[in-house]
Every structure is written in structure tokens, then in C-alpha cells.
Design a protein around this nucleic acid. Structure first.
Length: 271
DNA sequence: AGAAAATCCTGGTGGC
DNA sequence: TGCCACCAGGATTTTC
């Protein structure tokens, strides 16, 4: 499940290699979450200036326009000089002077969207409500505290919502809350000042370490160069229901919050 | 009005 | 083997 670390690892794995490339051919397969928004053929001749990221979106900057790429929950990009013939789950491909970029996404919850400017309606719709970037200076402790203070939903669900801070998906929300020793069900506005500070630090710490480990490969995630991640091996609580807590030895509990699994240690995360 | 909760999309997987 | 429930990220819809 690509969350911010997986998207960032993907970005790092091909951004340099594709920079400066010119598009020779482009094609779209089955429909994704959103339509491409232009004729794929019209991308031919454009140049790739760079690859950025906003939340879980990759922003491929072209000399004219942008491609917004989201990996959804099963998407992965591959970039190489040559790639084997495409399979049934390959839904976007771009041949460039420096290699082939291809999106594989079995569940098609992802998207590749072309916009001429980031101010275009479709870009604003997709990016406009995103919260703070957790790995930059934008992730301000005071703004974070103020945002949490006006939410009554469970802290885990506020983290997942993405309108306060982006990129913290299901895995890293559970992990960050464990690291900060906060019960996932605690109402966001009930966090004490020290708890907010611990959570702020834990989110940055967990996401940074996950990027360093190449992300989490639960099923089939790999970077654009084919590398799998290792952070799942360091998970303290995620996916460890009924296994002993690595910190205190008591059993990790799994509950359901808004149709999603949450993992926590009832002893280490008392409230 | 704004926040929270429910629903929907898809295909792989595991249990029976 | 086949069927079915389940899972996941996030936009949209519904409810409060």
C-alpha cells in the first residue's frame, strides 16, 4: 500500500534518470481512478523537467504541463532503459529518450492525470485540500496542535484523513501512534501538549526511517528500479495482532476504526 | 456549515 | 474447485 514513504522512494528511484528526457511515445490502458485528461499521443515531444511530490502524488513536470501520478493502493511505477512486454495490469506507459516509464496497477485506484497548470481545476481538486507535508518545514507544531484541537474524531482517523497532515496512511498512523505512546481511539482534541509534540516528532521519525528502508513491501511494492522495501520488518504494531509487543511483551490488539484496521499495544498506549 | 461517518470502486487472497 | 467475505486509499455522498 503506497503511503508517503513508498511514493518518495519511488520518486527517488527514477527522478534523476528521467530528468531531461523527451517523450517519444505515450499510451494509456484501462481507465484509472481519473481520466488522463488529454490524448496520450499529445504528450509526444514534451520534455520531462523533473519529478516532485505532494503528499502521495508524484508531480512530473513537463516543459508544458504536469502529470499527476497517484499509486492508489496497488500501483507501482517502473522506469528502465528497456522493460519486458506489458501485462494486463499495465495501464500507462511513456517511452522517453532515457527509458520507459510504466504504471502497473491491478486495482486501478491510482491515476495519471495531465494538467496544463497546477492551478487548473482538476489539479486543485486533487491537491487543493491536502494538509501539511510532514517531512518539510511546512509541518509546523503549532499549526498541527491547532488543527488537532478542532477535531473531535479519533486521532488515528484524523491522521488518515490527510487534510491536516498528508502521507500518513494506515501503516504509519498505527506506527507513529505507538511511537508516541498514544491510544489511537483518543479524540484528537483531547491530546495533551506533550502528546501532540511526541506525535509530531513520531510522524517525522517513522516516515523518515521508512524512506531510508525503502518503504514497506507488504505484498508487491517496489520502487521504479525494482527494489523492494524493508520497513515492514521494523513494524512495532502494524499487522501484529495477538503477537507480543516488542516493547512490553503484552499482546498487540487489533480494532477497527472507520472500516480500517488499527493496531496498538494496550499497555504502551494507555491513553 | 462543517465535521464525521458511510459508501463505493477493484481484484487478489484466504477460509470453508 | 468454487464461492464469498474481506481488505485497502481516497473521493463522494450521506448523516449529524
Amino acid at each position: 500500500m503506497p503511503e508517503l514513504p513508498e511514493v518518495e522512494v519511488t520518486r527517488l528511484s527514477f527522478a534523476q534518470a528521467i530528468q531531461g528526457a523527451s517523450i517519444i511515445a505515450a499510451s494509456a490502458g484501462k481507465p484509472l481512478r481519473w481520466a488522463l485528461g488529454c490524448d496520450a499521443g499529445s504528450l509526444v515531444g514534451r520534455q520531462v523537467l523533473g519529478v516532485g511530490r505532494r503528499g502521495k502524488y508524484l508531480l512530473i513536470e513537463l516543459d508544458q504541463g504536469w502529470l499527476l501520478v497517484h499509486l492508489g493502493m496497488s500501483g507501482s511505477l517502473r522506469f528502465a532503459r528497456e522493460l519486458p512486454p506489458g501485462g494486463i495490469h499495465d495501464h500507462f506507459e511513456m517511452v522517453t529518450t532515457q527509458g520507459v516509464l510504466r504504471l502497473n496497477d491491478p486495482r486501478r485506484f491510482g491515476c495519471v492525470v495531465y494538467v496544463s497548470r497546477l492551478e487548473d481545476a482538476q489539479a486543485v481538486k486533487l491537491l487543493g485540500k491536502l494538509g501539511m507535508e510532514p517531512l518539510t518545514e511546512a509541518f509546523d507544531l503549532k499549526l498541527f496542535a491547532a488543527g488537532l484541537h478542532q477535531r473531535k474524531a479519533a486521532i488515528k482517523q484524523v491522521l488518515l484523513a490527510g487534510d491536516l497532515v498528508v502521507g500518513v496512511g494506515n501503516i504509519y498512523a498505527s506506527e507513529a501512534l505507538f511511537m508516541a505512546a498514544i491510544r489511537p481511539t483518543l479524540s484528537a482534541d483531547a491530546l495533551s501538549k506533550p502528546q501532540v509534540a511526541r506525535l509530531h516528532a513520531a510522524i517525522k521519525n517513522v516516515l523518515t526511517r521508512a524512506v531510508q528502508k525503502g518503504g514497506s513491501t507488504l505484498k508487491d511494492f517496489s520502487s521504479a528500479s525494482g527494489q523492494t522495501g524493508y520497513f515492514q520488518l521494523e513494524a512495532m504494531v502494524y499487522g501484529r495482532a495477538n503477537l507480543p509487543c516488542k516493547q512490553c511483551g503484552n499482546y498487540i490488539k487489533m480494532i477497527r476504526q472507520g472500516q480500517r484496521a488499527t493496531f496498538y499495544c494496550p499497555i504502551c498506549q494507555k491513553r
